[in-house]
Amino acid sequence: MSKEFESVFFIEQLKRSDPFSMASDHFHETYEIYYLLAGERNYYINNLVYALRKGDLIFINKNELHRTTTKGRANHERVLINFQECFVQSTLDAYGVSFSFMKEPVLLLRPGAYEQGQLENILQAMLKEQKEQQALQKPYLQTLLFQLLVEMGRIRETAREAIPPENNEKERKVYEIIDYLQAHYMEKLSLERLSDTFYISSTYLCRLFKQTTGFTIVEYLNYIRIKEAQTLLRNSTAKVTFIAEQTGFDSIAHFGRVFRQIAGRSPLQYRKQNG
Rank of each mutant, 00 (worst) to 15 (best):
L127P: 05
K128V: 06
K128W: 04
K128L: 10
E129F: 02
Q130K: 12
Q130R: 00
Q130F: 10
Q130L: 04
K131F: 10
K131Q: 06
K131Y: 11
Q133S: 11
Q134A: 11
Q134D: 13
A135S: 12
L136G: 00
Q137N: 05
Y140A: 06
Y140E: 08
Y140V: 11
Y140G: 00
Q142P: 01
Q142Y: 02
F146R: 05
Q147Y: 13
Q147A: 11
L148Q: 01
L148G: 03
L149S: 03
L149F: 10
L149H: 04
V150W: 09
E151N: 04
E151V: 10
G153W: 02
G153P: 02
G153F: 04
R154F: 07
R154E: 15
R154V: 11
R156K: 15
E157L: 05
E157S: 06
A159K: 13
R160H: 07
E161Q: 15
E161K: 15
A162L: 06
A162D: 09
P165Y: 04
E166G: 03
E171D: 08
R172S: 09
K173P: 02
K173S: 01
K173E: 06
Y175M: 09
E176S: 11
I177F: 13
I177Q: 11
I178V: 14
I178T: 06
I178P: 03
D179A: 09
Y180L: 05
Y180S: 08
L181S: 05
Y185A: 08
Y185C: 06
M186K: 12
M186V: 05
E187I: 01
K188S: 14
L189P: 06
L189E: 07
L191S: 11
E192P: 04
L194T: 02
L194D: 01
D196V: 07
T197N: 03
T197V: 03
T197R: 07
F198T: 15
F198G: 05
F198W: 11
Y199P: 00
I200G: 00
T203F: 07
Y204V: 13
Y204M: 06
Y204C: 02
L205I: 09
R207E: 10
R207Y: 01
L208I: 15
L208E: 14
F209T: 03
Q211G: 04
T212Y: 14
T213P: 05
G214P: 03
G214Y: 02
F215D: 11
T216A: 10
I217W: 05
I217R: 01
E219M: 14
E219W: 11
Y220A: 00
L221S: 01
L221V: 08
N222I: 07
Y223V: 15
Y223L: 15
Y223S: 14
I224D: 07
I224E: 08
R225E: 06
I226L: 06
I226C: 12
I226E: 04
I226W: 05
A229C: 00
Q230C: 10
L232H: 01
L233N: 00
L233F: 00
N235H: 08
S236G: 03
S236E: 02
S236H: 03
T237G: 08
T237W: 04
A238E: 09
A238C: 02
K239R: 13
K239V: 09
V240W: 01
T241S: 14
T241W: 10
F242Y: 10
F242H: 11
A244H: 02
A244V: 08
A244C: 10
A244D: 07
Q246L: 06
Q246N: 10
T247P: 00
T247K: 02
F249N: 04
D250M: 12
S251M: 12
S251G: 09
S251H: 08
I252W: 09
I252R: 13
